[in-house]
Simulated scan of single mutants.
Amino acid sequence: MKVIIFDIWGEFGHFKKFYTTSSPLTFSVPPPTAVFGMLGAILGFGKDEYLNYINADNTKIGIQILNPIKKIRMSINLIDTKNSGSFHLIKNRTQIKTEFLKNPAYRIYVHHYDEKIFNKLIDHIKNKKTHYTVSLGLANLIANFEFQGVYEAAALESATEVITTIPEEYVESIEISEGKKYFKEKMPINMKPDRKPTAYKNIIMETQGKTLNGKFKNCYWVNNQTIALI
């Protein structure tokens, strides 16, 4: 099968963890559900429809960390616009401490089973065409992206090194090496069109962008490197 590869980056990112409320925390990498939204913005699917065309049933996603994960906290002001009638009459403001990713950059690997959608995605990413603004989570966190290529992905029976994040269930054993930082996060991997998550996975990563070593299954050989697709 073929995989399109592109890089995406920005000054800040925020992918809200589903279990945080008053002080929002962010995932270290965009969950597959967030990548579905990015692809929908590129292809021109509206926010109420893109999950009908891009979801875990027809799309495989791989995520490689390019910049070491850095998180900072900033206070943002939320204003009440519902009952004010006019902007200058707004009086209610709430300051919320929010966690952001600083200078996030990722390499995204995508395969879509629908050839028509997949070819359209290749054309749009290659020529930097989008219908909606692509962001890193929140609408005001604008992202840039760059096409890297389209490659054949060959399934592997087993692997000893991967350059992407990987679901915990694909890991048979892992080697802990000095100088590497390991992290595990529970992420949503699929959603219904009403935006209710339907599946979660524990995702393992090396937060500095270094390789994971050990014994892994369900991996692919792409462009002379081993990746995991979710």
Rank of each mutant, 00 (worst) to 15 (best):
P68I: 07
T160Q: 12
L101N: 02
N77L: 10
K120E: 13
M74H: 14
I117K: 06
H111Q: 12
N55C: 06
Q64M: 05
H111Y: 15
I166N: 01
M74G: 13
T81C: 06
A159H: 03
K116V: 10
E168N: 13
L141A: 04
D57N: 12
G62K: 05
E157M: 13
E161P: 00
I72M: 10
I72L: 10
S84K: 10
D114E: 05
V171F: 06
E175F: 05
H112G: 03
S173E: 08
I76E: 14
A155R: 15
I166T: 06
K60E: 11
K129H: 07
D48A: 11
H112L: 06
N92D: 13
L101C: 03
H112T: 08
Q95R: 15
R73F: 12
H124M: 06
K120L: 10
F100H: 01
L136S: 04
I54K: 02
R107E: 08
I125C: 07
E161R: 11
G137H: 04
V162Y: 01
E157W: 05
D57Y: 12
G149W: 02
K120S: 15
A105N: 09
G149Y: 05
F145T: 01
I96R: 02
P104D: 05
I176D: 00
I142H: 05
F145H: 04
E169G: 09
V134M: 07
E172L: 15
K70N: 14
V150I: 11
G85W: 04
E172S: 15
Y132V: 06
K91N: 14
A139I: 06
I125M: 08
Q95A: 14
A153Q: 03
T165A: 11
S135G: 04
V134D: 04
I90C: 08
L89W: 09
K82I: 13
T81K: 09
Y151Q: 00
